[in-house]
């Protein structure tokens, strides 16, 4: 009897396990990002946004929607993927995953796939919620969805790396809270970089989040802070870097095996 080349059932089992964790905490998983987004719409969309004019012929309330979706997708992808792989390391249940006929590549696919699925779902829910507050027309919905999936995949890969790197819960939160969130807020979620003084426009171009948010906004409104090709190249570059690190983890078993 020969073993199959791929353990699809094993990969599916991990994926389902991770999705079951999402279901167990469904209210918490959904309520927090939705409530936060609603608050952003009330504060920035209605209260402050009503005093701000259109940006690139787009109503300010609608303008912030792509950025708000990505704000959630970034943090949820990072948190879900890092927590997903860190918890079995922390609790010791990783022994079962490592002793199973699952390759490390399948393991990465399962954890990253589950985390990306969750954040894409949340992104779409936020998009639906936004439709209740603003009149939103998506210029290229298929591309927008494909881009959203790529972003979720990229940040879930990054989350997986954080989950492998972290040696404690504090470290798990360090990059999402202290690096990604500030960069996202300064990454053109609530404004176009054209609205900034020139020096800050130049500084902003060193923020990689600018490129990712701009690309996503392009597929909504047909315009962005930078060329959509630059955005796509940046996102693909980020994915390639993450895949490089993950493949090194796969090859060496770094912090997975002793």
């Amino acid at each position: 009897m020969t073993a199959p080349m791929l353990n699809l059932r094993g990969t599916w089992a991990i994926y389902k396990f991770e999705m079951a964790r999402f279901k167990r905490t469904l209210w918490q998983s959904l309520a927090t990002p939705i409530l936060t987004t609603v608050l952003y719409f009330i504060v920035f969309g209605s209260a402050i946004g009503s005093r701000i004019g259109d940006i690139d012929q787009v109503n300010y309330g609608a303008f912030i929607v792509p950025g708000l979706i990505l704000l959630t997708v970034f943090t949820q992808s990072l948190n879900n993927a890092s927590f997903g792989i860190y918890m079995p390391r922390f609790s010791g249940t990783i022994y079962e995953i490592l002793s199973a006929p699952v390759s490390t590549t399948e393991l990465v696919l399962a954890y990253v796939g589950a985390a990306a699925t969750k954040s894409v779902l949340l992104g779409l829910i936020i998009l639906a919620t936004a439709q209740l507050f603003v009149d939103l027309h998506i210029g290229q919905p298929v591309w927008m969805l494909a881009y959203l999936v790529m972003v979720a995949f990229a940040f879930s890969l990054a989350g997986f790396i954080i989950g492998i790197w972290a040696e404690g819960f504090e470290a798990l939160q360090f990059i999402p809270m202290l690096v990604v969130t500030p960069l996202t807020f300064l990454g053109g979620v609530f404004y176009s970089i054209d609205m900034l003084p020139e020096i800050w426009q130049t500084i902003s171009l060193f923020n990689p989040i600018i490129y990712i948010v701009s690309g996503f906004r392009y597929f909504f409104f047909g315009s962005g802070d930078v060329s959509v090709w630059v955005s796509l190249a940046s996102l693909i570059g980020f994915i390639v870097i993450c895949l490089g690190i993950v493949s090194w983890i796969v090859r060496t078993g770094h912090r997975l095996k002793t």
Partner: peptide, 30 residues
């Protein structure tokens, strides 16, 4: 696929039910 391990330490998930965790193990091993 043909090797099983009962570890020394009590490494278990907390929130899963007994049936779900045992079924998960079967799927994990393909």
């Amino acid at each position: 696929r043909h090797t099983g391990l009962v570890p020394q330490e009590l490494f278990t998930d907390m929130f899963e039910t007994v049936h779900d965790t045992v079924s998960f193990s079967r799927g994990l091993f393909g």
